[in-house]
Design a binder for these strands. Structure first.
Lengths: 350, 350
DNA sequence: TTGAAAGCGCTAACAG
DNA sequence: CTGTTAGCGCTTTCAA
């Protein structure tokens, strides 16, 4: 009986034994070095193909100190925004033969720091971080300066950290949307926003307030409602907040919805309660998506730039990986424009 | 000037020099072995914390032969189905300290095989594959038997491959939906489906045909329309197919839409052309999602089981990783039930 | 154009 | 309870 268990994987050493060439020579062939005799190369390649040799990436990484691995650490991987961003990052990176290791913090601040440490441990070449905005500043600084791993932050800002950043221009976007409602004659405009601790939400509220101020409309703090994404019974909570809005003697006549998930809940509540949109209440929403078109009514939003954010972030990261993490950090804000549909009162008879 | 460049990473060796203990002892502390003097452990741990030592995962993997890495290879990472599946897989795996390396084949058969080989090269502990159904059978068999890496296939079947599989019960689901349309009195029922080469699509069409046959309704091949997801101008193509449907002298009175992306395009076309739903044309759609509720009209669908598919697949993979990849393969079909809303004709006056 | 030697950072086996 | 030795599979000198 043959007890010599077949090895799970063919190694360089094995190829060396078979071909009679040394490991370095075979390594050179695999890595496409010059100065290999054509005959040698051909022989080795044919054996490699025959045995279906695949280099052990883990050993190679250990030796070279490069992993070709990019960590994507996101606060939520299952929503409309994130999905498109990840896909566009993936597209850029796969072209450069970088692989993605994906982490979902699920809105947990502790996990955010933990995954950053896992990323260090994995010796990733770079990190793209869509944070809750509360990651450990010291940790991030140390990753950049000591470990020299470049980081690009998207979505939510982390202050006091000299890192590349790519954001939606939230203030301007929110201002545009709010002003559009004002142009329809609305003065009692509410805003429904995700967690007030995220900078993207804070900035959207800021843009909303600026628009009101510029038009001499008083800010009513009761009109500012927020729901944390991670909250249980998320959709029910949205409905509670909106019913609060309608319980006031001075009811709002329009709502600025600061994200798509919120829009789904909001519309859902309004339909259940037979509110006419935009007749009873006008709406605008921040994020765009293919399906807002077929909502009832189609939502007036800002043009979607999710893919662009992913592409820009990935390219920025690649640039830093090539050029060294310590160079001056860039902050890129990507602007967007209004897409008018029906929910705001344009094109409508409701 | 001090030219001794500070190292990017603290190593075991360095900790060893500092503490005076040997590398194995430190390694044991890190890996929580018993039989370490409390004093030794405390000393070592304090130095580790102070220096913020993080084990090099690549070296550890090389030594142990385990990477704790799971490859997720999906044909499309940016749609409603996939997003939920990935999130639920992630949830299961992160609990077991497995990390995810994410690949998107983008409907490219060549890339599918390429990424499988990358996964081998990375020595992943397991693979979850949502394929186009055309992966290299030999390659997959060799991964299972030779490399002993467990694979779980979801979404589309790959024939002649003895691998664990988790699927939506497409035939039964499609049958239920079609029968529901029939129960409303429809006889001219069209189906709009993704690429006919994917088994999930084929099975849905099969279920549709079974329902028709069982009710003695003749199958009209003209009523079966398909659009490949990867097609350029995807939404325009959908609209073309639907307008074809309406160009027939025997126009269909109902459409079974076999996936959510298709539903968006279909609804969009019908609204543009002022068709009343379900009055002019009744609809049912396969996948469910939070937002089909607020579509106009809300879509009658099958209850969403995307999360369940991810959870079941991930647990199955974990089981095989633990118990050896060679055990008998399981095939799990997950059933679903009808969620009646308005698009089918229930609850409606249109 | 090729090979010998060394070592990346870690852990397993064995000895004590 | 701890240290010595060895080696995972690869690539990088350096020398020939």
């Amino acid at each position: 009986m043959n007890n010599k268990k077949k090895p799970k994987y063919v190694t360089l050493n094995y190829i060396s034994e078979i071909t009679g060439y040394s490991r370095p020579t075979i390594s050179r062939v695999i890595n496409g070095h010059k100065y290999i005799k054509k005959e040698t190369r051909d022989k080795i390649i044919s054996v490699i193909n025959e045995l279906n040799y695949k280099p052990e990436w883990t050993a190679r990484s250990l030796r070279t100190g490069k992993t070709n691995l990019i960590a994507i650490i996101f606060k939520d991987i299952a929503n409309f925004f994130t999905t498109e961003v990840i896909a566009s990052i993936q597209e850029v990176l796969s072209g450069k033969r970088k692989d993605i290791i994906l982490f979902n913090t699920n809105f947990d601040k502790g996990l955010e720091n933990e995954y950053l440490e896992v990323a260090i441990s994995k010796r990733v070449d770079g990190i793209i971080l869509a944070s809750m905005g509360m990651a450990n500043v010291q940790l991030i600084n140390s990753i950049i300066t000591k470990n020299e791993i470049p980081i690009v932050i998207i979505d939510n800002d982390i202050k006091d950290v000299n890192v590349d950043k790519v954001f939606h221009d939230n203030v301007v976007g929110a201002k545009i949307l709010t002003e559009h409602l004002i142009s329809h004659g609305h003065k009692r405009i509410a805003i429904i926003s995700p967690s007030l601790r995220e900078t993207s939400a804070i900035e959207r509220i800021e843009g909303y307030k600026i628009a009101l101020k510029n038009n001499s409309i008083e800010i009513n703090e009761d009109y500012i409602k927020s729901i944390k994404f991670k909250e249980e019974k998320f959709f029910e909570k949205i409905k509670e907040r909106i019913s609060e809005l309608f319980s006031y003697t001075q009811k709002p006549t329009a709502i600025f919805i600061a994200s798509t998930n919120l829009a789904i809940g909001t519309l859902s509540y309004l339909k259940e309660n037979n509110y006419k949109i935009p007749g009873d209440i006008a709406l605008v929403s921040f994020d765009d998506h293919e399906f807002v078109n077929i909502m009832n009514p189609p939502l007036t939003t800002l043009k979607s730039i999710n893919k662009e954010i992913g592409t820009v972030a990935a390219n920025l990261l690649l640039k830093k990986i090539k050029g060294g993490a310590k160079k001056e950090a860039e902050v890129i804000k990507i602007g967007s424009k209004l897409i008018v549909r029906d929910s705001c009162g344009c094109n409508s008879k409701n």
